[in-house]
């Protein structure tokens, strides 16, 4: 496969996996958890490095996952003591991030584990960093990881589709139906962390936030049905990746930045033209529905 195809495939996988997870995030009103987890992942990566003293993917992934769960758990706990979720998220992620930065500057020393790259990511190099697989042949490492994660995400959402629906829209009902709401919450947070880490490695923290929140929010403007929303969000996610790549080529600029920016363009489009909740639609049937 050519270079461009790999980039587009990787970007689309990020778009799809994040788009799917993002819908649930938005509906559960936890959009900023994405921002928090994408930052605290740094602490996970640094700790994993300090413990295993290697920069290989596996330990990083586990470290990042644990950091994501720690973030979710801390935020949950602070909220349970009566702190507003906004503030709880703010306290947790900045603190964990600060600890990550301190660890880098004190213990990791000059080893090249830099904050800069972790935050920006570098999708442009992905196609060159390949592994060899038996049947498929050469495949970029990050793309492979994203494929696996995307499959997991789809599987977890599809298998427990009903449970997700109930816990998301009506947690009280879910509890009375005997669905383990808290467990679902942590399963979901694990899903968010894993997706974040996989995408993060490819495109950096900021891009992950854009991909998790923006396509889902745009999809939220198109439909009220969960399934449709999931599909639209995944499509918007993948489309933004491709559009972003186009913009990056056109302006000769950072690819991941452009992809984040492209999600914004598609959001603006949805904001204006969505038949259900778009601004133009509202203009036409002025009073009445909102």
């Amino acid at each position: 496969m050519s270079y461009t195809a790999w980039i587009l495939l990787t970007g689309s996988l990020v778009g799809i996996s994040c788009g799917l997870v993002g819908v649930l995030l938005i509906l559960r009103k936890m959009a900023m958890m994405a921002d928090a987890i994408s930052h605290t992942v740094l602490l996970g990566i640094v700790s994993a490095y300090l413990i295993s003293s290697s920069l290989d993917g596996g330990s990083m992934l586990i470290g990042a996952m644990l950091a994501g769960l720690l973030t979710a758990w801390l935020v949950q706990w602070f909220e349970s003591t009566g702190i507003h979720s906004d503030a709880a998220i703010g306290v947790v992620f900045t603190t964990l991030f600060a600890i990550g930065v301190i660890l880098i500057s004190t213990s990791v020393g000059n080893v090249h584990l830099d904050v800069n790259h972790a935050l920006m990511g570098e999708i442009s190099f992905i196609p060159w960093n390949t592994v060899h697989l038996p049947v498929i042949g050469q495949i970029p490492q990050a793309t492979l990881l994203l494929m696996i994660i995307t499959i997991i995400v789809i599987a977890v959402i599809a298998l427990f589709y009903k449970e997700w629906k109930v816990t998301t829209f009506d947690p009280a009902l879910a509890a009375s139906l005997g669905i383990p709401v808290l467990l679902m919450h942590y399963v979901f947070m694990t899903l968010v962390s894993v997706t974040t880490v996989a995408a993060f490695d490819a495109v950096g923290a900021i891009m992950v936030v854009a991909m998790l929140i923006t396509p889902a929010a745009a999809a939220n403007l198109w439909t009220d049905k969960l399934l449709t929303m999931l599909i639209i969000s995944a499509v918007i996610g993948a489309a933004s990746s491709c559009a972003g790549y186009g913009i990056a080529i056109w302006l000769n600029t950072s690819i991941s930045g452009s992809m984040a920016f492209a999600t914004g363009i598609l959001f603006v489009f949805s904001y204006l033209f969505s038949p259900r909740h778009g601004q133009l639609a509202k203009w036409f049937h002025k009073p009445g529905e909102i």
Partner: peptide
């Protein structure tokens, strides 16, 4: 160079 970011043109050149 420590904080260099590749652009698409750079990638083409490398390719």
């Amino acid at each position: 160079p420590h904080s260099y970011q590749a652009t698409q043109n750079d990638i083409n050149a490398l390719q």
